[in-house]
Design a binder for these strands. Structure first.
Lengths: 247, 247
DNA sequence: ACGTTGGGTTGATCCATGTCAACCGAAAAA
DNA sequence: TTTTTCGGTTGACATGGATCAACCCAACGT
């Protein structure tokens, strides 16, 4: 079993009040770097927690935007739809990551956010978040960093889609997941995929058959052990080597 | 000749002082929506204008980040380099657009910004920009919108790279350029490309030969007239139809 | 005016990935 | 328990775009 998250010590006092100040994701999430007093001000702002069941939408493309969401637990995907029916998964998000940043630009969401497992989110009404970040420099700066990080991540995906071959893409994908699980205190070598081969393929610009074949090849080569959605990474360096190989 | 930009009326008074308040790009750029008093406060912040000659770097990946840049005139590309030598153009930027947003996240630039023609930029020291946007709500909000717009744009590119075929990608690219030229008061139907086929290819995840062939096909079909870097769009709807074609 | 160079075009061939189809197994529904 | 469904795997074949190569043209330096 990978590590579980530490239990809240004073359950009796904070059953309802699940605030940033008592959230063990605070160092990964929006409250990063805030002091206690600032944390409490942010607590006042988190208006609602929402439970989203697997398969349900947190929001849909076209809906008016007014909040950004932090994932408290669970796993999401975001996707965009073209008029002609084509769609593409633009990202997979896990605990501590933010959803909805794309909506700021037009004041409408531009993608769908769908839970890949039963999940919980915290809502930050955006205008109030802007208000608070005018008062708390640290919050403002961190929020800017989070947005910028999203831009950098997108550039990475563009690189992946534009220059990498199928197996390189999948290797990059697995290494990225592994690294993010590690940052959350889970095993870097063993995890369950929450998404289907088709969703992975959509994200990586590949067909599901190609994804499946790449998994099989990785297994043959001894890089990983695959059993359905359960992945064990046996040779991280093998995967890394696979990526830096080409000129 | 496409429209030229209106000449500054009082050259004698404002030769040196080239500030946001007198910039005809202000409605496209960072100062969008600010009133006169706010504009003047932003003017105080624009520390330097830089001239960048064609082929020169505005900044390089890895350099410490401290300012974001607005393009006053000219044309840029940004690209990322992988260790193994592969690189990808992540965007083309024109007057009024911002460069450097990717650097906020790590406090180092994560890509190269290279002028594709002789250009001029305005520098906004980022910490001062944050300071001012804590005081000017409109500026703060607009800045957030600009960052968000960049994220949305990137999703569009991911879509393009992940789901479109070569000719669709090129059509999307041309339509996007056309639309941005229009927004700047230039002809939507006639323009010069500032980048090579190879750079277009890199951006679109294609080889230069494929780009060249697609241009030729568009010409055969009568969608455009190509002569080197000079493009005339003859049939916008033809290009649009080309994109919505597939299921 | 001439040669050089870099970008662009076009053709022939190859290959990675898409497409189509059969089949399997696990989990959910009946 | 049986059946259905959905996701996944694997094989055979098709194809879009990459690769390799020849050639063209315009711009620029000498």
């Amino acid at each position: 079993m990978p590590q579980t998250q530490p239990l809240n010590q004073d359950l009796t006092l904070s059953v309802i009040k699940t605030a940033c100040s008592s959230c063990n994701l605070r160092e990964l999430c929006l409250p990063f770097g805030l002091n206690l007093e600032e944390l409490e001000r942010l607590d006042d702002l988190v208006s609602t927690r929402r439970r989203i069941k697997r398969g349900d939408h947190l929001y849909r493309a076209g809906e008016p935007f007014d909040s950004i969401y932090a994932i408290r637990s669970g796993f999401f995907k975001t996707d965009v739809l073209l008029e002609d029916g084509r769609d593409q998964v633009t990202g997979f998000q896990m605990a501590g990551e933010l959803l909805g940043l794309d909506g700021i630009s037009t004041e409408h969401h531009t993608c769908n956010a769908i839970a890949l497992e039963d999940s919980e989110t915290c809502s930050f009404p955006f205008s109030r978040l802007e208000g608070l970040s005018r008062e708390i420099h640290t919050l403002q700066h961190h929020f800017h960093k989070v947005m910028s990080r999203e831009i950098v991540r997108d550039h990475g995906v563009m690189m992946l889609l534009g220059t990498m071959r199928a197996e390189e893409r999948l290797a990059a994908f697995l290494l990225n997941l592994s690294q993010r699980f590690t940052a959350r205190g889970f095993s870097h070598a063993e995890f369950y995929l929450r998404m289907t081969r088709e969703e992975i393929g959509s994200y990586l610009g590949l067909k599901l058959e190609t994804v499946s074949r790449a998994f099989s090849r990785f297994q043959e080569e001894g890089y990983i052990a695959v059993q359905q959605k359960h992945i064990r990474i046996l040779d991280v360096n093998g995967l890394k080597a696979l990526m830096n190989h080409r000129a």
